[in-house]
Design a protein around this nucleic acid. Sequence first.
RNA 1: GGGGGAAUGUCCCGAGCGGCAAAGGGGGCGGACUGUAAAUCCGCUGGCGUACGCCUUCGUAGGUUCGAGUCCUACUUCCCCCA
Length: 422
Amino acid sequence: MSDPAEFVPKSDFLRIMRERGFIHQCTDMEALDAAALAGPVTTYVGYDATADSLHIGHLISIMMLRWLQKTGHKPIVLMGGGTTKVGDPTDKDQQRPLLSDETIAANIASIRQTFAKFLTFGEGPTCAIMGNNAEWLEKLGYVEFLREYGVHFTVNRMLSFDSVKLRLEREQPLSFLEFNYMLMQATDFLELHRRYGCVLQMGGSDQWGNIVNGVELVRRVAQKAAFGLTTPLLTTSSGQKMGKSVGGAVWLNADKLSPYDYWQMWRNTEDADVGRFLKLFTDLPLDEIARLEALRDAEINEAKKILANEATTLLHGAEAAATAAGAAKAAFEEGRLSADLPTHETPRAELEAGVPLATLAADAGLASSRSEARRLAQGGGLRLNDAPESDGQRMITLADCNSEGLIKLAAGRKKIVLVKPV
RNA sequence: GGGGGAAUGUCCCGAGCGGCAAAGGGGGCGGACUGUAAAUCCGCUGGCGUACGCCUUCGUAGGUUCGAGUCCUACUUCCCCCA
């Protein structure tokens, strides 16, 4: 492994990856750079189908694939229909519940649409293609698997990888099922190499061990050079793991996190992270980013808006981004309502009878339960039409509608929902 | 094979003489301060109910007891010691 910090790549792809902060580790920067100069490098990233949407943690690798394609190489998006059935032990203390075939299939169907927004799929030489490792993993017989692939791995070595080592050190059980995960991922790489000439696997830094195993398997079995490249863990400057938004994970599917909330998440980036995130999550040129991150104090808010606009445009489209920006501007800068704010519809009949504030707030998604909404109100965090309302029991009726026939509820300064009688 | 320990509020770590919705951190959320930032200070942090209240939680399954996270039995997983 060469130190990626010292080598200066000549290929467009690696140069850009370096400049923009995508690279954490690489199995062999110099050789990979040479390969990228020589012609299209077919590259894959794997995504397990553990949920019905990808989240922001996946976005770095998607952006990498995007740059890869832009610089003349071929991306493969591999859905982990097979590996999801086994479960990656990385960074987990416990095996997650095994997902059913139906759930996995549904998750894949729900996830795949995201990639079309960032990559161009098709038949061309640098067009992205999508695969599913269930296609080959599920056909493997046990003895065949052991003889064909198992011989190339030593348990000694497997125990040395963090995903396994940490679990053992933390005294958490690691089932034999999960222990096999890295072998399955390694066979993916080999299979993709055989089918498409894939020679590079990328992923998050936590995937290093899994990736290295695949690289070695390709080298050993196919006698071909193969490479691995990982990205740094996505964290914020102050806190830790990034990936929180208005109460929960930052999902990429619009039905799990609205474009408005997605825009807000970026808008609320910490000052210290603005430059880094612009480089990772937008296509803006570096000199423009340098100008933006040099802004200080209140002015850096402009950079955050650009970050939010750009990132939201990539995922949800320019229109959705503009709508989100407009709603935010109206609500936060001009103090007026916008119909584009998140809206919760409540049957008119219920409001005629009266609904307790806490109930309405919980239903509207401002709190996860009525109790929480009540506590929120008592703590002064719940506002009804901009006025703090500490009584969660207070009955809300149509009389609370403003001139536009809406009721504005807010939890804290940033979570706003318009209740609309229907 | 034998002996001794450990699993706690479904985010994490962690205290817990038989009366416990369960100490304390971290995290998260809210308030103040700000720039929809960070830092700092303060509050909240199982669910349901307008309310005296009710319900569900301490690895799993049983048992003792008016009453069990706390005692007993079996099981699961992990650690340590002796073989």
